[in-house]
C-alpha cells in the first residue's frame, strides 16, 4: 500500500505538461527556473536546513531519551511517572507541541522564536518517546545479577555499570537515533509553527512548492518529496538492520 503513493511521487517529479523530463531534477537548486519564474524557496537550502535540524534534533533526543531511560529503569516503580510524562507528546499532536512552544517562547525574556534551536527542540520532543521506548525495554532486560557479578569481580558501581549495562545501550540508542532523524526529516506539524522564513525544512518547502501554481514549481516539490522519501527509507532500513542483529553479538556494543 505504501509503494503506490511513493511511486506516484517519483513519477510526478519526472512529469511535465509536454511529457517526461528530468528538468525538475536538473533545475534543483536554481531559484530562477526561467526568466521571471522564481521558485520562492531554495530547495538546496531546505535540504541543508533539514539535515542540520535532523542532526541537532537527533542529538537532543538521544541525550534526553538516553538519560531519561536510565532514570526510568533506575527509579523502578517510580520511573513510571517519568515514563508517562515523556510519552505525552505521543498522546498529543505535533501541531499542539509547535503551537504550545510558539506561545510559550514569544515574550521577553523568553522570546526565543528566532532561536536556531527552537525547531530542533520541537522535533526532539516528538522523537524522545521513541528513543525512550527503544532503550527502556533493552535496559530492563539486563539482569541486575550481572552487575552484581561484576561487583564481585572488583568492579566499582560505575565500572560494573559500564561493563554490564552500557554495552547494551548502544544498539537501542542507534535505533532511537535513526528513528529520531527520520521523524525530524519528515516532521511538518510542529515545524509549520516554529520555522521562519529562510529556515524552511524539506516538508515546509514541499508544501510551499506544491501550493504554487505551475507544474514546473510543483515538479520541484515532487523532487524534494522523492529525496525525503529516499532518505527516510534508508533510515528505516538502518533501524531494521540494527533491531534485527543479535543483541549479545560482539562489535556494536564495544
Amino acid at each position: 500500500m505504501a509503494i503506490v503513493p511513493l511511486t506516484a511521487l517519483v513519477l510526478r517529479s519526472f512529469s511535465t505538461p509536454t511529457g517526461w523530463s528530468t528538468s525538475a531534477w536538473t533545475n534543483l537548486g536554481r531559484t530562477e527556473i526561467r526568466p521571471g519564474l522564481r521558485v520562492g524557496v531554495d530547495p538546496i537550502e531546505a535540504i541543508s536546513n533539514s539535515l542540520t535540524t535532523a542532526a541537532w534534533a537527533t542529538s537532543f533526543a538521544v541525550v534526553v531519551g538516553g538519560v531519561a531511560s536510565l532514570a526510568i529503569v533506575a527509579a523502578q516503580r517510580h520511573g513510571r511517572l517519568i515514563d508517562g510524562g515523556l510519552m505525552l507528546p505521543l498522546a498529543t499532536s505535533a501541531v499542539t507541541i509547535g503551537l504550545g512552544m510558539l506561545i510559550t517562547f514569544d515574550t521577553a525574556p523568553f522570546d526565543w522564536r528566532a532561536s536556531w534551536w527552537l525547531v530542533p527542540v520541537g522535533h526532539a520532543l516528538v522523537a524522545v518517546p521513541f528513543v525512550v521506548r527503544t532503550c527502556v525495554g533493552v535496559l530492563r532486560s539486563v539482569d541486575p545479577a550481572m552487575t552484581a557479578a561484576a561487583a564481585t569481580l572488583g568492579a566499582s558501581p560505575i565500572a560494573a555499570w559500564r561493563a554490564t549495562v552500557v554495552p547494551y545501550l548502544w544498539r537501542p540508542l542507534g535505533v532511537g537515533a535513526a528513528l529520531a532523524a527520520a521523524i525530524s526529516l519528515g516532521e511538518f506539524g510542529a515545524t509549520s509553527f516554529l520555522s521562519r522564513s529562510g529556515g524552511e525544512t524539506l516538508p515546509i518547502a514541499i508544501e510551499q512548492l506544491l501550493g504554487r501554481t505551475g507544474t514546473t514549481l510543483q515538479a520541484q516539490g515532487y523532487v524534494l518529496a522523492t529525496l525525503l522519501t529516499v532518505t527516510t527509507v534508508v533510515l528505516v532500513v538502518l533501524v531494521e538492520r540494527l533491531q534485527g542483529a543479535d543483541p549479545t553479538s560482539r562489535g556494536l556494543g564495544r
Binding site: D143, A145, M146, A148, A149, A150, A151, T152, L153, G154, A155, S156, P157, A159, A160, A163, T164, P167, Y168, T248, S249, R250, G253, R254
Partner: peptide, 22 residues
C-alpha cells in the same frame, strides 16, 4: 563494605558471564 572492596568472589547459579565479551 561495598561488594567490590570485600575480596569476595562468587560463582552464580546461572554463571552471569558477560555475553558481549569473549
Amino acid at each position: 563494605t561495598p561488594t567490590h572492596r570485600r575480596g569476595v568472589g562468587m560463582v552464580f547459579q546461572d554463571n552471569q558471564l558477560f555475553p558481549h565479551m569473549t
